[in-house]
């Protein structure tokens, strides 16, 4: 299915993890239903073309990933100050294909309500299932921010020992890019940072690339990747069993609860920006 959403066509998207690309030399993948070829030359120069080789696409390397666009990008890729802080690990937790719309993945990432059920014993536990009220706003930069999100977590991080009360902040930068800031157990005033760069492969299929920016102190690199994969692989079968696979934008399509405040704004924001790829657009009343 082709994409007609200018906001997505004229934006940057991740299509490959640079380390993986350099090992393989080249790969083919899909972006918004269009097959693209990503190649790394002997000199390390990376290029992205349409798979038939007829057209060169814009390309840049950032945060260890290859970014491209099917149109004319009107804005830069997002800026992440945490990725430039020397006392953080900056690593990919691995890119994972998921058979569901990337918009569903964003929404799941924003949802604290599933912690005690899907991540039982790690990010939550029964019977502590209530999501306390939190704040949501649309910023001047046209991003969605959710703050004052508190949750008690038995094993909140790769090195957590015992349960702690964790504070989250969520941030939706672009329709397919979402991040969270999460209490670091050693530095109450600083937060670990996780961002998902979701590659919309098709309307019901995506690859979830991610960058993990964890404060090094008290943390070991392999544990970070292990924890990310442990958690993500718990989400994956749930995501792949969501029906419909695309995200319905009609406010009456799925019944939200108070804990879904940020998801409600996300869906409205997608509607306001006419994002239909990976979505089921709202019908006019």
């Amino acid at each position: 299915m082709t994409c007609n959403d200018r906001i997505l066509i004229d934006d940057w998207h991740v299509v490959a993890d640079l380390d993986q690309l350099l090992q393989a030399g080249s790969c083919k993948t899909y972006l918004l239903g269009v097959e693209v070829a990503v190649t790394a030359g002997r000199d390390g120069q990376v290029a992205v073309t349409l798979a038939d080789g007829k057209q060169q696409l814009p390309c840049q390397i950032k945060y260890g990933f290859v970014w491209t666009s099917l149109g004319s990008p009107e804005r830069e890729t997002i800026h992440i100050p945490e990725a430039f802080e020397d006392d953080r690990y900056i690593i990919s937790g691995g890119s994972f294909p998921v058979k569901v719309s990337g918009l569903r993945v964003v929404e799941n990432f924003l949802d604290m309500g599933h912690f005690p059920f899907v991540h039982n014993g790690w990010l939550g536990e029964e019977p502590h299932t209530e999501v306390a009220p939190y704040e949501v706003e649309l910023t001047e930069d046209n991003e969605i921010i959710a703050t004052e999100c508190y949750f008690h977590q038995p094993v909140a991080s790769p090195t957590a020992e015992g349960g702690i009360e964790v504070e989250y902040k969520y941030r939706v930068y672009r329709p397919y890019i979402v991040a969270l800031y999460k209490t670091n157990p050693l530095y109450p005033d600083r937060k670990d940072y996780i961002v998902l760069f979701i590659q919309p492969v098709g309307p019901e299929e995506c690859v979830v690339h991610n960058m993990l920016c964890y404060i090094k102190e008290g943390m070991k690199e392999p544990d970070i990747r292990w924890f990310m994969q442990l958690i993500f692989a718990q989400d994956k079968p749930i995501l792949e069993n969501q029906i419909p696979r695309r995200l319905p934008l009609d406010p009456r399509a799925e019944t939200p609860i108070r804990a879904d405040k940020v998801a409600i704004l996300y869906r409205r924001w997608l509607r306001d920006h006419s994002v239909s790829y990976g979505a089921i657009p709202a019908t006019e009343a």
Partner: peptide, 9 residues
Amino acid sequence: ELIDFYPGN
């Protein structure tokens, strides 16, 4: 002993 099977190979 955790081995980084993917993506570390």
